[in-house]
């Protein structure tokens, strides 16, 4: 808990950049470097990046960074099925599943498949396997691969079988990396325009869009504003704030003005930026400047708004009762309970 905010981190990634996962023939080194350079660009004093080149994050370290060194209550470990350059992706499904297995009370598992890597039928079968065997409650997708290879969310042959399989197996939310092209991915392949038809055709599915589709920010917000089953994860934006605070405030302000506070999600993007608590403190103390409220109509960043973004919205989407979860984690005394939980975790209980 941060003050009385329940913190549910939508996006943490168990990275694996060790040699056995790097595809040296297909730009693995370059992609790793590009990712680290992006993290470096949006870092600064108090908000450091971590050069994760050549490393694989252990579940114990992930637990320490998320739940001992930050006020995060629960988190979703997201697979990154972006394979060009990495054999199993930047953040393989197995690594994220292992974190959930180690700390099932704290971590939810977001699986990942890709119709290009796995093939049309293979992706559906692997998604079902990750749901049934590994307990996936969500899926993350990266549609653009190096050199302009990509697929579309509204492709009836390639993508719709995935959405149907998810719904048939109890998963009613899917997530998408939009914008922020790396390496030789084409930015047009990461535009948000393919969300509309899918959101119309699958009203019972929730489509979560990451990074506001930068640079398609206005388009992403416009589309999300018109479909109640589209949600926006503020991932990467909170990380950009220390470098470009006014740009981040404009982005968050536009989201609040056009989409409202009920469909915005908190995500830290751990662990390329490992000081998760710094970002939690930053958002908890963030205010919408009066000149932006006056000149752009952005609403104030009230505690009610922050409470929704920090955790209430994603908990509602995932069917988690916050009061029940808090009692499960901390008993009746929340902060005292958290200290006890930390102590118990340190002793392997």
């Amino acid at each position: 808990m941060k003050d009385d905010f329940f913190v549910f981190d939508n996006a943490i990634h168990m990275y694996k950049l060790t040699e056995d996962n790097v595809d040296f023939q297909h730009g693995g080194i370059e992609r790793t470097n590009a990712l680290v350079e992006y993290a470096k660009k949006f870092s600064g004093p108090g908000y450091p990046y971590d050069d994760i080149t050549g490393r694989e994050l252990a579940v114990e370290d992930a637990y320490r960074l998320m739940f001992e060194e930050s006020d995060t209550d629960i988190a979703m470990a997201q697979t990154v099925p972006s394979h060009g350059g990495w054999k199993l992706g930047f953040s393989p499904a197995e690594n994220n599943w292992k974190l959930k297995e180690a700390y099932p009370d704290r971590v939810l598992f977001c699986g990942g498949v890709d119709p290009i890597t796995h093939g049309h039928y293979g992706a559906v079968n692997e998604a079902i396997r990750q749901i049934k065997e590994w307990g996936a409650v969500s899926f993350k997708f990266y549609q653009a691969h190096s050199g302009g290879v990509h697929w579309q969310i509204d492709d009836r042959q390639v993508a719709y079988p995935l959405w149907e399989a998810c719904l048939e197996n109890g998963v009613n939310n899917v997530q998408f990396h939009k914008g922020l092209a790396f390496n030789t991915q084409h930015i047009k392949d990461l535009a948000p325009y393919d969300l509309e038809r899918a959101a119309q055709d699958f009203p019972e599915m929730n489509f979560i869009v990451h990074h506001l589709g930068e640079p398609f920010i206005n388009e992403t917000i416009n589309i999300a504003a018109r479909y109640e089953n589209i949600h926006l994860a503020l991932t990467a934006w909170i990380n950009q704030y220390p470098v470009a605070p006014r740009a981040a405030l404009h982005a968050i302000g536009k989201c609040l003005l056009h989409v409202g506070p009920d469909r915005l999600l908190w995500g830290s993007e751990a662990f390329v930026w490992p000081k998760v608590q710094a970002y939690i403190d930053l958002f908890a103390g963030m205010e919408m400047p009066e000149d932006l409220q006056d000149g752009y109509g952005y609403p104030p960043l009230t505690d009610e708004v922050k409470r929704k973004i920090f955790g209430e919205n994603f908990a509602r989407l995932m069917g988690i009762d916050i009061e029940v979860k808090l009692k499960e984690l901390y008993g009746n005394g929340k902060k005292k309970g958290k200290k006890a939980a930390k102590k118990a975790a340190r002793h392997g209980k």
Partner: peptide, 8 residues
């Protein structure tokens, strides 16, 4: 419950 600023 407004989703615009008090100024607007």
């Amino acid at each position: 419950d407004s989703t615009v600023s008090p100024y607007a």
